[in-house]
């Protein structure tokens, strides 16, 4: 029987995802498929594995291979103060309202290697909110969380981070927030004090706590419709009334079931406020 090559490859990916789910309990079937496939292909070519089918027996029997694969295709790339204009709006439109709370709880869902978590720590510190804030960064990828906790970034990225920080309305010198060491930049320990990183999987875990501000930027683009809907329900349940949700600048709530639960704070920055009732 003749079958198109792309169909066969699709079956291989199905089987690989099924193997990961049944053997290790991680379900990537609800992730946006095209990117998962691309990352699988990329990983296998780096590991010189000839075909997707060849990887299946190996990941069933070799746990470290499977973990490396899952880490590889779940890591996302971000920067400090990515989309500076969003931080500008957070500062001007959200922070004044956060100041009315005795305690502020911020949740970065899908924080990857933590760049945006520390960006928020800097912003809250400059706004005098840091001491009454708790910032949570969660991800299901333990390797990413380890990097996030370490807060060490390549020095070559600092120039870009600094430019972003300035465009985001930063009030000091960005150099105040890190220590350069050879080719690395280490985030200042004062910024870590009120930050907690923890493992949380948006596919399987439930409400993480009662939050004042939730940021989940460029994470749900990696999900399919159902998983995205699940994550949005989770965020809506977690937010206090009047709490804020900030999503990626190319994501939107328009066609989601939770849209009526929010009013728009800033359409371009994708910042929403949970309605009182």
């Amino acid at each position: 029987m003749k079958m198109d090559e792309e169909t066969v490859e699709g079956i291989e990916v199905d089987l690989l995802l099924e193997a990961l789910r049944r053997r290790y309990g991680y379900d990537f079937r609800s992730y946006a498929r095209a990117t998962v496939e691309r990352r699988v292909r990329q990983f296998l070519s780096e590991m010189s594995v000839a075909s997707i089918a060849d990887a299946i027996p190996r990941l069933l029997h070799d746990e470290s291979f499977a973990i490396t694969l899952m880490q590889h295709f779940s890591i996302s790339v971000t920067e400090m103060f990515r989309d500076p204009e969003v931080y500008h709006v957070l500062r001007s439109a959200v922070v004044p309202l956060l100041k009315t709370y005795p305690h502020v709880k911020v949740w970065h869902a899908g924080c990857a290697t933590g760049e945006e978590v520390y960006s928020m720590a800097i912003l809250l510190r400059e706004e005098g909110l840091y001491e009454r804030a708790t910032i949570f960064g969660t991800d299901f990828n333990d390797a990413a969380l380890q990097s996030a906790k370490a807060g060490i970034y390549p020095l070559q990225k600092i120039q870009e981070f600094t430019k972003n920080y300035q465009r985001a309305g930063g009030r000091r010198s960005f150099a105040d927030y890190y220590h350069a060491d050879y080719d690395s930049a280490l985030i200042d320990s004062a910024l870590k004090r009120r930050v907690t990183f923890a493992n949380h999987n948006l596919v399987t875990d439930t409400v993480f706590g009662e939050m004042t501000l939730i940021l989940c930027r460029n994470v749900m683009i990696y999900f399919n419709q159902e998983l995205r809907a699940r994550a949005l329900r989770l965020f809506t349940e977690s937010l206090v009334r009047g709490g804020f949700l900030c999503i990626g600048t190319r994501e939107d709530l328009t066609f989601s079931e939770v849209v009526d639960a929010y009013e728009v704070v800033d359409a371009k920055a994708r910042i929403y406020k949970k309605k009182a009732a």
Binding site: E6, A32, A34, R38, V77, T78, I221, G248, R250
Partner: peptide
């Protein structure tokens, strides 16, 4: 869109990513 990869899913849906 600028600064995003654009992919097409097998069902013809468009998908963005911020992969490297």
């Amino acid at each position: 869109p600028p600064d995003y990869h654009l992919l097409i899913e097998r069902d013809g849906g468009l998908a963005l990513s911020v992969d490297a």
